[in-house]
Amino acid sequence: MNSLIDRYVFTVLRRVPEQQRSDIEQELRTSIDDAVDARVGSGEAPDTAVEQALLELGDPDRLADGYAGRPRYLIGPEFYQIWRRMLVMLLSTVLPVVVTVAAVIRVLDQATIGEVIGTVVGTALTVGAHMVFWVTLIFALLDRAGVAGPQLRRKPWSPDDLPHYEAGFLTPANTAAAVVWPVLLIAGLVLQQFGFTEAPVLDPANWSFWWPYLIGVLILEALYPVWLLRRGAWTHTATAVNAALAVLFAAPVIWLAATGRFFNPEWIASLNWGATDPLDWLTGVVIVITVLAAIWDVVEVGVRAERARRGLATPVPGTGREFTSPLS
């Protein structure tokens, strides 16, 4: 009969800070004994009395959490919001970039289509699991360390933080995202000469003019969003400059690919794709992607600029209403 009480008390103590154990043990034993005595006094059998008294105290783990002041959740309301936002950002933005880079490297490594799919699935699962695990671990530790959530924010929320719904409104974050792509392309263009594969992927002969030229255009593409942000308005000029940049980039790429001067012949020769001819196939892919990307870019910016210029409304789904606010 006593062994039941012993087991209960030890189970509680196991999960309580060491320096409090002797104090909690004495108090808990006395409380249990008091409860048992009261039950025996009212006519219960001693064995039943112990069982009922322990049953009343409930799950020892829960009692121990109460004594230790431990929260019974992993991430509390203080951190939930910022934890969720960070996970969404990582999984929706960073993960696709990482997976794409991994897949491209595999393709350049002359992997078969099956191997590339394997890499995509494997990378997505592994990197995704790592992201979720580490972010959750860090926030769980912060929560337990007693850091107050608001300390992580630079300033408390204010109405100025409300998102903008005007068509074509530019925030510094939008601009930063638009700058990243050209910069990544420049990095890829330079790195393919030295990294990834034994022979450079792109024709090294073009370093005499076309690759430096494309890098120059890409630098202009990276400066364009900054210029737009500083202008602060979508005008016909903005649309025209964007279209000009798109043509300046796409036309030489398509011409180089069509005339067979885009890829490094040495690298093409190292590919072994069986029946398919790698040069034909890759040339087709480059031309299609370049054309589609250029058309998308020109049309998207054109439509957005036109909507913003006219101060057109943004529909709010589900309300049947529109958000109207003319751009100043």
């Binding site: 909690i24 006395t30 008091d34 009343e56 409930g58 799950d59 004594y67 002041g69």
Partner: peptide, 28 residues
């Protein structure tokens, strides 16, 4: 008063309190 006596007093006064809530609460 001590833990169990307080528990008795409170239930007699009509407070629905459980031992596993009260004992940690006293220490807090």
């Amino acid at each position: 008063g001590y833990g169990y006596s307080l528990l008795e007093t409170l239930s007699a006064a009509g407070f629905e309190v459980e031992a596993n809530t009260l004992y940690p609460l006293l220490r807090r």
